[in-house]
Write a protein that binds this DNA or RNA. Structure first.
Lengths: 205, 205
DNA sequence: GACTTTTCTGGACAAACGTCAAGATTTTCG
DNA sequence: CGAAAATCTTGACGTTTGTCCAGAAAAGTC
């Protein structure tokens, strides 16, 4: 247990518990959204009691922001593998497009929660700092894809990072909504759209 | 008053009242958003009592959907003037970009409400029909701009209507959030981004 | 002017909400 | 072991919510 003393400080344990609670909360939040997910419902769908939420989080906003931050922290590296593995521009685009589609299929609840939170931040000022910060990390994530794509293609990006992110986010959001509405063929459409859009993001050779 | 008998059927009066109530409600909804705007708050910020809401609308959802539908019905023709007046492609782009900026400045509360509602529809199935329908009219609105732009430029659109709408909506949404956050220079950036993007929507000459 | 119908008011209701706190339980550590 | 600290449970609180309703007021009709 010599190493154990170092790996288990009280603060670590506290953080670990917060993470577990947030993980649990994310499932309910992804199902009901920000406004409809009550702290009691969140607690019920977890192994915790509703009082413990206030032991680990100051209030509801604190919990939700922590949850989305935690999710996005891992989500933000979703495309790193594709970027690292791709050896040609076309390969990168294909991998990226496939991964986007995979994201919509596997993580639709989490992403609608993100869009919910971002929309709420347009009303609730106390959400803005966290939302802007997360948005920036997403922009960086997209930019890693686009700039690598530009390098592999031997061309220069034609647009600022925020523009590239805005365009792709628009398409993604549209596809997510259509997917949740059960529209057939959305995923293939998104894939095709990304293949269509990516070359446009680069300056002419 | 011979024509008056025809212009004032009881059903018309009922609809007129609904419209007035919705107009009033829109102000509060644009300020607080879908979840935080209670029927009492909506009624308080109007000339009506909170009971009358249930006389004219079945429930809260009914009211909100009616409100957003009503707003978008006029909003959807915002760019028609630009389209009709433009004589060159560049003129159209400039007018369109200016109008987008003007929209963000003048109608930010209404548009954040729309994004709020669209995000909620990802959770609440009963909202989806109305949201998809409105979304389609917005897509048509954008397509009127893009296709006219293509004609004036003597080139063909390079992308499907939904793609053009998705891209522009992504940029617009990003700019709206930044504007609400008080970021300086967003409006000029949006204008520049639109000037940058529009030519890309057309096939090479 | 008396009637019916429509429109509106304001209070009452149960349910659900976020928050809190007192006490039980567990863990930690000398 | 036993005291101290951390963790958790449970129930209660004061609001606020959407909805409903009995009756007042107004409009329409003969």
């Amino acid at each position: 247990m010599t190493t154990a003393t170092a790996r288990r400080t009280p603060a670590d344990k506290h953080d670990e518990r917060r993470r577990a609670l947030a993980d649990s909360a994310l499932r309910t939040l992804g199902e009901l959204g920000y406004a409809r997910a009550s702290l009691r419902e969140i607690a019920n769908n977890s192994e915790f009691s509703h009082g413990v939420v206030h032991y680990y989080f100051h209030d509801k906003l604190d919990l939700i922001v922590y949850c989305v931050r935690q999710y996005k922290a891992t989500c933000v590296h979703r495309y790193d593998g594709v970027v690292a593995d791709a050896t040609t521009a076309d390969e990168l685009v294909a991998g990226f497009a496939d991964k986007l589609v995979e994201t919509i299929v596997d993580e639709a609840p989490m992403h609608r929660l993100w869009y919910d939170l971002r929309a709420q931040s347009m009303f609730e000022e106390s959400l803005r700092e966290a939302v802007l910060q997360i948005d920036k990390t997403l922009e960086d994530m997209i930019w890693r894809v686009v700039s690598t794509y530009a390098e592999l293609a031997g061309r220069a990006p034609a647009m600022a990072p925020s523009v590239a992110y805005g365009l792709l986010d628009g398409l993604f959001q549209q596809a997510l909504l259509a997917h949740l509405c059960g529209r057939e063929g959305v995923l293939d459409e998104l894939r095709a759209q990304v293949h269509e859009l990516m070359p446009v993001l680069l300056a002419p050779a």
